[in-house]
């Protein structure tokens, strides 16, 4: 059976990408890398949306959703990077383990 006729292949790729994102988020300390891990997870979710909508619902709603997620991700990146720059200007580091001002 062709892998393109079923959603499982895409879904598995998405799952693997998502887990990589999560593990990266836990492993790494560089704020920008964490940021990229989040993007990766978003991307994995996009893949899932596409696959499920395409193969289960045979609808384009998944694509619309992916489009909207992309727009939101763009906004998120812009703001997030501005925050990163602001933090760097103030503390001269992007190591999240140094950013514990909010601890209890």
């Amino acid at each position: 059976m062709d892998v393109l006729d079923r959603p499982e292949g895409f879904l598995m790729v998405a799952a693997v990408l998502f887990v990589i994102g999560v593990v990266g988020f836990i492993l790494r300390r560089n704020l920008i890398v964490l940021f990229m891990c989040v993007e990766l997870m978003l991307n994995a979710v996009n893949l899932t949306l596409m696959a499920v909508a395409r193969y289960v619902g045979a609808s384009m709603e998944g694509q619309i959703m992916v489009f909207l997620v992309m727009a939101v991700a763009a906004a998120e990146t812009a703001v997030g990077l501005a925050v990163v720059i602001a933090i760097y200007r103030k503390r001269a580091t992007v190591d999240v383990d140094d950013m514990t001002v909010m601890n209890g």
């Binding site: 999560v22 988020f25 836990i26 300390r29 964490l34 999240v96 383990d97 950013m99 514990t100 001002v101 909010m102 601890n103 209890g104």
Partner: peptide, 18 residues
């Protein structure tokens, strides 16, 4: 008691979240 969980480090939160 609760502030022991509030480390301020993002990754701790993600850990619990996961």
């Amino acid at each position: 008691l609760m502030r022991l969980f509030q480390t301020g480090a993002v990754r701790t939160y993600v850990f619990f979240m996961m």
